[in-house]
Design a protein around this nucleic acid. Structure first.
Length: 604
DNA sequence: ATAGGGTTAG
């Protein structure tokens, strides 16, 4: 702060001397005052003074050119403003440049664009860029970089194209920025086109370009290409390895992520704490508690445990691996906790049926002066849904609106879920229809809300709508759809959607899908078909499915089949009392009291 | 004349 303030003063002083304009002296003073107490009145005072310069007349008269050193000094001040995110100071420098009539200067304009971009003000950056009469290579670089840094991938790619249209060849910085934009947008085809342009540009050998490619392919879900690019990179550093590991972990290839982690060490590349964040992510996705604990030990040995990101990743891993106590221990040991760390513990509790505790953490974080963000609200809402607590859910909904988070997809999805679970289909619909953007989770939540409240046909309506809008259903969608079918009791629909899922969408049904279909078929009395279906299931855990069939057999009095189903459960889960209860009820109903008594004998 | 690009937690 002190450094560039001094520089700015000096720059102002020089200008005053050169231009003979008294205003600069005053504005310089005001600038100092402004720094002392940041008051808005001072800024207003400054604005008033800004209008005083002798605007009419020849700009060159009374506005002598800045010396090269003065320009460089202003540039360095702008750089510092950007680095320290000192937007207010940057604006003052901008005003100063404008008064010097240097705002059409490409060199300073580029620096202004960079400053505004660093401060997160892309609209201002763009305005400066557009006002420049001439753009050079660097003008495009700072603009594109600003867009990428601020998460505006769409605009970044537009500029990348605009630059080429205006006849400028992109260099490797532009390529990496553009790949970043594709990664954030999940724009695989654009990314592939850029890849093609990179091959033949001579930049494909560069480590950073290669890393950006691995990242782009990974973020777009094309792990095959990511791996193939990675393997072609001759000299890989730790960031490159980290990227590959992260990409595997994020795409559910946990085993492969751990393989890469081992391989990098064989390659004598020393993992850093970022590596461990992704390795923990891999353990979390694999639900590999033991491996996770092992990695935790390594983290402690290498003194990375104090990193807030590592602590958060550990909480997440333990939460996913169903070891809430380990998660709590990590959380308690953390010296510093930010909102993400609190979110992690809230989420860990909510995922492990400790929803009350999750809401306690939610209150506690606010007592600790940490403001909840959109993820916090989504996690807290998950806890409400689990508790079926409409009251708390409504309270959170009000807080969400107060904090302006109702527009977040994550939050809206969680709200639909809460209202659905609490039987408020009307409120669920209200949230759903107010959304600007919907993802597959939004549709799933809405379909589940309908199914849960017995509106099977409405659920199927949303299922059709989502496809009309171009959203691809996933396994969870089909689970809710099958649930809806079990509400309508339409076995044809049940069969139809099961086949649609497996054959048209190529999704592998999970135990829960079979469970649903067996339930639909069983309750309708299609016991033979249901049993056949269970027999086609691969090695998954079939206990619940056999139990479901057993229940159906009891309803329809099919004792022989019921005994078969019960025997499967006995074998798979010898300690479960459920099959005994169901089977003995069924035997009693069938009048086979002796058999029922015998069965009770076994049970005792 | 500028400066610099790739990885990471909920």
């Amino acid at each position: 702060m002190m450094v560039y303030r001094g520089v700015l003063k000096r720059a102002s002083h020089h200008s005053r001397r050169l231009s003979g304009n008294v205003v600069y002296k005053r504005s310089s003073k005001t600038l100092d005052k402004f720094h002392l107490d940041k008051g808005y009145d001072q800024r207003d005072a400054l604005k008033k003074q800004k209008r005083t310069p002798d605007e009419p007349g020849n700009p060159t008269k009374g506005f002598a050119a800045l010396t090269r050193n003065e320009v460089l000094r202003l540039a360095s001040v702008l750089k510092r403003c950007g680095q320290t995110k000192a937007l207010a100071d940057g604006k003052l420098v901008h005003a100063h440049i404008r008064r010097c009539r240097y705002d059409r200067n490409t060199f300073l304009g580029n620096w202004l664009v960079q400053m505004y971009g660093d401060c997160g003000r892309m609209a201002d950056a763009r305005a400066v860029f557009d006002a420049l009469p001439t753009h050079n290579l660097h003008s495009w670089t700072v603009l594109i970089k600003g867009y990428v840094k601020n998460g505006c991938g769409r605009e970044a790619l537009d500029c990348f194209e605009g630059m080429q249209i205006s006849g400028i060849q992109p260099d490797c910085v532009h390529f990496t920025c553009a790949l970043d934009a594709c990664a954030s947008l999940g724009a695989l085809d654009k990314g592939q086109k850029i890849h093609a342009a990179i091959i033949g540009s001579g930049y494909e050998e560069r480590l950073i370009v290669g890393t950006a490619l691995v990242n782009m392919y990974g973020k777009c879900g094309n792990i095959f290409e990511a791996r193939s690019v990675f393997r072609k990179i001759p000299q890989r550093d730790v960031i490159c390895w980290n990227t590959m590991i992260a990409v595997c972990a994020q795409n559910g290839h946990g085993e492969e992520a751990l393989d890469f982690y081992n391989e990098m060490q064989c390659d004598c590349v020393k993992p850093n704490y970022v590596t461990y964040v992704s390795v923990l992510d891999a353990c979390a996705s694999l639900r590999a508690l033991q491996k996770g604990q092992e990695i935790h030990a390594t983290i402690v040995v290498r003194s990375y445990e104090g990193q807030i990101v590592i602590g958060t990743a550990l909480i997440n891993m333990y939460g996913k691996c169903k070891s809430l106590q380990d998660a709590r221990n990590v959380f308690d040991r953390m010296l510093q906790r930010d909102v993400v760390a609190w979110n992690a513990i809230i989420s860990a509790c909510a995922q492990n049926a400790h929803s009350k505790e999750a809401l306690e953490y939610f209150d506690e974080m606010q007592n600790n002066g940490i403001r909840p963000d959109h993820v916090t609200f989504a996690c807290a809402l998950d806890a409400c849904a689990d508790l079926v607590s409409l009251e708390k859910g409504q309270e959170l909904h009000a807080a969400i609106i107060n904090n302006g988070y109702e527009g977040h997809v994550l939050v809206a999805n969680a709200l639909i879920n809460v209202y659905g679970k609490c039987g408020c289909l009307l409120d669920a619909r209200g949230v759903f229809y107010q959304m600007f953007q919907r993802d597959v989770v939004s549709w799933n939540a809405m379909i589940a809300a309908c199914a849960h409240n017995g509106h099977g046909n409405e659920a199927l309506y949303y299922f059709n709508e989502m496809q009309n809008e171009g959203t691809k259903p996933d396994q969870i969608t089909f689970l809710s759809v099958l649930n809806a079918c079990s509400h309508t009791g339409c076995i044809d629909d049940g069969r139809k959607y099961f086949i649609l899922m497996t054959e048209d969408h190529g999704l592998t049904p999970k135990m829960e899908h079979y469970l649903c279909l067996v339930d639909i078929l069983g309750r309708a009395g299609h016991l033979d078909e249901a049993e056949g279906l269970v027999n086609t299931m691969s090695c998954e855990n079939k206990v619940r499915v056999w139990l479901c069939l057993l229940g159906a057999c009891r309803i329809h009095g099919d004792v022989e089949r019921g005994v078969r189903a019960a025997n499967h459960v006995f074998k798979l889960d010898p300690n479960s009392p459920a099959p005994y209860v169901l089977l003995s009820n069924m035997l009693v109903q069938a009048g086979r009291l002796d058999d029922a008594r015998k069965l009770r004998g076994i049970e005792l």
